[in-house]
Design a protein around this nucleic acid. Structure first.
Lengths: 149, 149
DNA sequence: GGAAACAGGACGCCAAAAGTCCTATTTGAG
DNA sequence: CTCAAATAGGACTTTTGGCGTCCTGTTTCC
């Protein structure tokens, strides 16, 4: 439905919470984040693992461990979060170089013409930071194109 | 996955074919469209029914009936097609006035802040016409904002 | 009157998402 | 040195929604 998956949605919320806590220099663990976000612990854990694999957060193992932001929320564009959970941002499967996937590739009247559209969506999502989505008070701004908020 | 549904994808292809045929003043029926599109007849029929309900095409019943475009492809923005098949364009369920859907509504740190993002996506999709996606030779242009193609 | 074609809905299958859980590994504290 | 806390990684089950198909009714031309 042109909707983000729930995990992606959760990720934004979790990142927002992490931003609040980490701004105070603290490291936050899963139980605390789950409580603050109103989500189930296993779900939050799953979200954080994916965020860690994408390099958006840093996991600190061992007792007194937890998670920490790799960059400030101002430096995390929405497109990065979405890509981590949903893969490359493209409205159709037949993106640029993807050949062979479509059976009617030869006669498709829209072949190759989705690329500008996908680029527009990507640009729009790259122009919004997680900080703008969270209620984060304006901290130091990143060098990023900013959407007309 | 931030992907269009297959039906939406088919719809663009079918509209493109309809544009070619209708430019010659003809009315096209389901079997012919299915053949030209390389899709199964029941699928094409389903697509056309939805397009007709959305007012994008006009169904002519009875023998020698078929489908005809309600407007030229230049006047059909991509957003109209997507809305017909996927509902309102919004990345999250908690859009503007939608209250009560989210259980953690009260404490959500991103509450209400998705709206500008959704608007940006909508604008981007409204700026592309089906004619631009199809290989349609440039006909008379509609009064529509056009994406940087 | 009959055939061709759309209108509208209902049904079943399947794939992907979503949520949960288990085990291994790491690390700090006592 | 041992234990507990916490992440890493994967596997598994349930559920949801897309997708394709089909059936019945209605309309219209020949």
């Amino acid at each position: 439905m042109l909707r983000l998956s729930k995990l992606t949605d959760y990720a934004i919320v979790v990142l927002a919470r992490l931003g609040q806590a980490n701004a105070a220099g603290r490291v936050t663990a899963v139980p605390e984040l789950a409580l603050a976000s109103g989500l189930a612990e296993p779900t939050v854990a799953k979200v954080l693992k994916i965020l860690a694999q994408a390099g958006l957060v840093e996991g600190l193992r061992g007792a007194r461990g937890g998670y920490r932001l790799s960059r400030t929320l101002e430096c995390i564009p929405l497109s990065d979060v979405i890509t981590a959970f949903e893969g490359p941002i493209a409205l159709t499967a037949c993106v640029d170089g993807a050949a062979g996937g479509c059976e009617s590739e030869g006669c498709c009247p829209v072949r190759g013409r989705w690329d500008p559209v996908n680029r527009a969506i990507r640009d729009a999502l790259a122009g919004v930071t997680v900080a703008q989505l969270a209620n984060t008070p304006p901290a130091r701004q990143c060098a990023a194109a900013v959407l007309n908020f």
